[in-house]
Amino acid sequence: MSEGNAAMITRDDVIDFIYAETRMLDEGRYTEWLDLWLPDAVYWMPLDYKQADPVNATSFLYEDNFMLRLRVERLNGERTFSQKPKSRCNHVIQRPFVDVFDPEAGKFQTVTNMHYVETRLDEQQLLALTVTHDLALVGGAFRIAGKKVELLNCDAAFGNIQLLP
């Protein structure tokens, strides 16, 4: 990732960040992953297709920093029964579209299609995702200012989705 001068930032830097973030999730490097987030950023997974209002109708997830921390810390708990044994996940991602590229303002937005696989014991599920990242440049490094994860089959019934697509 580029350091310092905003003028040096390229679209490839933005795209590399998306790949790196996804890799952290797949490798379970959650502490590092949490550090990517701005304190007031929210992880939103809508329940309804093309849902506009995240809070006055039910979403799957609308996680503030406290909830994300709780989710990550719980995964490592002694008595986290649904994670004995632990789930594993894998993202296959398409090259992100960089829809907003504004190094001067330090604002970037990407849209990335992904196939997400989560597995535990004999179960494995595949979800098709469209992920929108809002990124900010803070002290020369990208931080997540918001992430929206849309499920292609959001109206289907699911069993547990335990990790973070």
Partner: peptide, 27 residues
């Protein structure tokens, strides 16, 4: 409207397939 937001928040935190509370119940 904040009451609806509260109900929706409870719903996703407790009753969703992505809920860390729901996960242990289903288990």
């Amino acid at each position: 409207e904040q009451l609806t937001a509260m109900s929706a928040m409870y719903n996703r935190m407790i009753n969703a397939p992505t809920s860390i509370v729901g996960h242990d119940d289903l288990e």
